[in-house]
Design a protein around this nucleic acid. Structure first.
Lengths: 230, 230
DNA sequence: CGACGTGTTGATGCTCGTCAACCACAGTGG
DNA sequence: CCACTGTGGTTGACGAGCATCAACACGTCG
């Protein structure tokens, strides 16, 4: 496996804590996998056999119960996932599928455990990453329990705009039906909600949105640093 | 601080990883605090100055946004909380208040950091605990997004019954209004939902419930190992 | 006792999901 | 080139799920 291509991953949170040559050791046992879109990588209910590291592309984490399905998260490179399950060895609570052609590195859980047993810096970085994920989950729960779907959408668009430094038209990160599921609503409801936000200066054109007056939208959305990512 | 009284805490997940005399070192800087019910221990928005370890009693973690408030979790001793915030140093995303007369140990975050820097076993135990919390959060989110409030209540009662080994009448762990908020519904809706579950053999008497026929209730609730704690 | 907090019940309406129809668009194959 | 088909998005009609508001019952406590 060529080293150079993955040097960018050295700064990715849990890997950034790796000492000495452990980055190379971890990757020695890993395999690089390329996938087309719509490939299910793992189905919930089994313990993970790999830690996944997204090198390019995008992956959806989703869950099912009865005949219902919900998008839990959409990840874009660089990112790693199933870290908590890798650490605990517990069954995965979510399934994963690619949304685009995607390349990723699969590190066998045994290899991760071996390094965890020796490399205190790595353990610390893993703990920090997990602490971060706990707090992201708390934010998500607050978002779900204290806001209506219109409020969630409005805040989502605001956070999109924050990451779009200055551009007026912002591409939605996924298809609308995934976005709806992420936000905890149906596609039909998202469609209507986007219309509803026109009253606050939100314009929609296909898969792109624009905010004509941020303050006006924020006055409705009331974003909060303890719910929405800064 | 008398050692003997807290020996039971040696097996509490994050503390169980402490090596040698670090249990004593951690507690050397700690203070024991006793509170009556309804005391706010910490308000969301500030970084935590202590790691909290519940020795007796019960604590509610809750969050606020605008004029809305929601119960995120109810903890009973023994338990520790604000671990993720202690590790990351980030602002607390939740407030905490006592629900009963409660005793707890407050460990200054600096003391925790000092031990984290030296004791690899502790770091590993913290990472394991945080991994566990990540997965609990995922379960909670699945519960919220894929189930109706009636289904959440039914599954909650089933899990109560699982912990009640054999007793027919089970005490609800909190007042109904807290329970409602925990489950993401209003008190009024909980009241009606409890009536609705009578059709599946659930009886209610004040703060106690009983399940006359587990299978009948389970047939409606459809509990699932990847959502409800086993 | 009166005051207060919790729980319940009823009336009402909003939020949102469901179902169906329809449109736009891309890909396919005759 | 043009039907044919499938997919994602939108719209409308409808109803389930749920919150809100008000009233009241019941217990606890000053």
């Amino acid at each position: 496996m060529p080293e150079s291509e993955f040097d960018g991953l050295r700064t990715l949170p849990p890997l950034s804590g790796l000492q000495d040559g452990n980055f190379e050791r971890l990757f020695a046992d890993a395999t690089l996998q390329s996938c087309t879109a719509q490939i299910v990588l793992l189905t919930e209910g089994a313990p993970p056999d790999h830690l996944f590291i997204l090198v390019s592309g995008a992956v959806e984490l989703f869950a099912q119960w009865q005949d219902r399905e919900t998008t839990m998260e959409v990840l874009r490179s660089p990112a790693c996932f199933f870290l908590a399950e890798t650490v605990s060895g517990a069954d995965c609570l979510m399934s994963a599928r690619t949304l685009e052609p995607t390349r990723m590195i699969l590190v066998p859980v045994e290899a991760v455990h071996a390094i965890l047993a020796e490399d205190a810096g790595f353990v610390r970085a893993v703990a920090a990453e997990l602490a971060d994920r706990v707090q992201l989950s708390v934010r998500a729960t607050k978002n779900l329990k204290m806001r209506t779907s219109l409020e969630r959408l409005a805040n989502f668009i605001l956070s999109l705009q924050d990451m779009a430094d200055g551009r007026t038209w912002i591409e939605l990160p996924t298809e609308k039906r995934k976005l709806a599921s992420q936000l905890g609503m149906t596609p039909e409801n998202l469609s209507r909600a986007l219309k509803g936000l026109q009253a606050y200066g939100v314009k929609v054109d296909g898969g792109r949105v624009s905010v004509s007056n941020r303050d006006e939208l924020a006055k409705f959305a009331k974003p909060h640093p303890l719910i929405d990512r800064r």
